[in-house]
Amino acid sequence: MVKMKDQICLQFFQIMIISIFVILIVFTAGVQIEAEIIQLATTTSTDDSGLLEEILPIFQEETGYQVDVIAVGTGQALEIGRRGDVDVLLVHAPELEKEFVDNGYGTARHHIMYNDFVMVGPENDPAGLGKENELIEALHRMYQFGSRGEATFASRGDESGTHVKEEEMWEAAGLEVERENWYLSLGQGMGDTLITANEIQAYTLTDRGTFLAMQDNLTNLTLLFEGDKKLINPYGIIPVNPEMHSHINILGAEALVEFFRSDDVQDKIGEFGKNNYGQPLFFPDAD
């Protein structure tokens, strides 16, 4: 029996060693030198709008770079930027972006476009947000009707750019909503939050682009409040600093920045969405 045990041990290790070799061979064969790739981390809402799908193919054709889009939450996008896992970021959280650049993780933040946030809610509008012209007034109304149990608010609750914006809004209105039982913190992306609001007849804050793109599937929701200056949502593009991570494709990242800032692409950004929604989803603002 002892001999058999040894034999099996030996066999086992032989198989293990062979396995490891196979793994190494197959894996290294799979690794190609792909200098032409640029990895772009962006937020799910940007990706869901369809803008990148429309304009990145032009960049790929013009420059030969291939752009891999990784759509994650804002916090995650900034974190993978800090770790050097991507070459360039396209996000919309000005405060966090400034911090990112100030701490040396990004070379510079370039403005390329903005869109805006809007408040959407159930068609019958129980809180009457549609009657308000002032954001602060509208929020007070939301609070008042929420406390009476007549309205619900669905919050992203995921520390995304949109959620941070929403928190700033409540703070500007001097309202403490976190613990209210009509205030639902979902911890979900924009699409999921809109779908939830649509199902439970709740109000929510959304970027205009995602709402317009999904409107056909949100039959219970309607746009109720828009146009306040506080609801502007600026997008920045930031190349990751190659001094922090030497393998960063800084030439590619900078080519992409230049591309987004070019007159041609700025025009295209301003046109995007007009055909489908009768209004643009983004407004170009490269300086």
Binding site: F27, G30, V31, D68, R83, G84, D85, H245, H247
Partner: peptide, 16 residues
């Protein structure tokens, strides 16, 4: 991750 021990392989965000 690029900051992790196997970062040099550049496998993150690839099928590998």
């Amino acid at each position: 991750s690029a900051s992790g021990p196997f970062g040099f392989l550049n496998w993150l965000f690839t099928p590998n």
